[in-house]
Write a protein that binds this DNA or RNA. Structure first.
Lengths: 128, 128
DNA sequence: ATTCTAGTTGACGTTAACGTAAACGTTAAC
DNA sequence: GTTAACGTTTACGTTAACGTCAACTAGAAT
């Protein structure tokens, strides 16, 4: 079974962040690693959560929002009404993400269009 | 010709932001509206820039990054070497945006997958 | 025994992106 | 003439997401 453990430096190194950042995420309740004595000991599950957090950040969500998204998973086994709420939140998130993707696509298209114009200018210069 | 002019309140209203925000963007050099006397007077071009800024923000870029992206356009008419630099920056931005879109797609897929599981639980409950 | 190498917990500093309040100048309406 | 609506600048306040010490502690190595 995959019960690999990680030290704080391990994860910091792997994900190119600082130990301070990991402790900060813990303060914010985003991570809850075991303690071996005083030291933090991260499980594979913690590692997965971390990658979720960072991915969320990369796409522009705040830590609070990422926290919400992550907590969706944890609540999935609760009472029925609880699950329904989770499902709705989840679908809302998906909507936001999709409209965000549209924004990105639009931006990409505009930038690419602009690139083409720039390249045309270069070509023109070569002719003259 | 489209030379419509906008007051600060017009744009604030249209884009659902505050006047403070518009002045802030101006301080940061992102917008440079005309002045009629002391008052700001935004052109259609300013409006387009603003929508760029806000779209950039929605997809997670900082104002500084958005500023860079916008300035790409302004530099497009400079010297040749200048244009080449612009082109490169532009292509870099496109790369970033594409990898961001991949992140979003992945997140969407995972959330959708999770939704399906939740819905399966609901269905199960109805049977029992 | 001491030095080195992780790790720990405060606590204050910093940057970005505005919010908010104060104090003031036009113009239009009543 | 004054009140209201809309604008202005100046300046301090705020929140998020860490950075940066400082002052330990615990174990391993020399």
């Amino acid at each position: 079974m995959e019960d690999k453990k990680y030290t704080i430096a391990n994860l910091a190194e792997e994900f190119q962040i600082t130990a301070r950042t990991l402790r900060f995420y813990e303060d914010k309740g985003l991570l809850k690693p075991e303690r071996i004595g005083q030291n933090r000991c991260y499980s594979e599950a913690d590692r997965v959560r971390l990658s979720w957090i960072l991915r969320g950040k990369r796409v522009g969500f705040s830590l609070a929002e990422v926290g919400e998204m992550i907590s969706l998973y944890d609540v999935g086994d609760g009472r029925k009404t609880q699950r329904v709420v989770t499902l709705e939140k989840c679908q809302e998130r998906i909507k936001v993400l999709k409209s965000q993707r549209d924004d990105i696509d639009l931006t990409i298209r505009e930038l690419e269009e602009f690139c083409i114009q720039l390249e045309a200018l270069e070509a023109e210069e070569k002719v003259s």
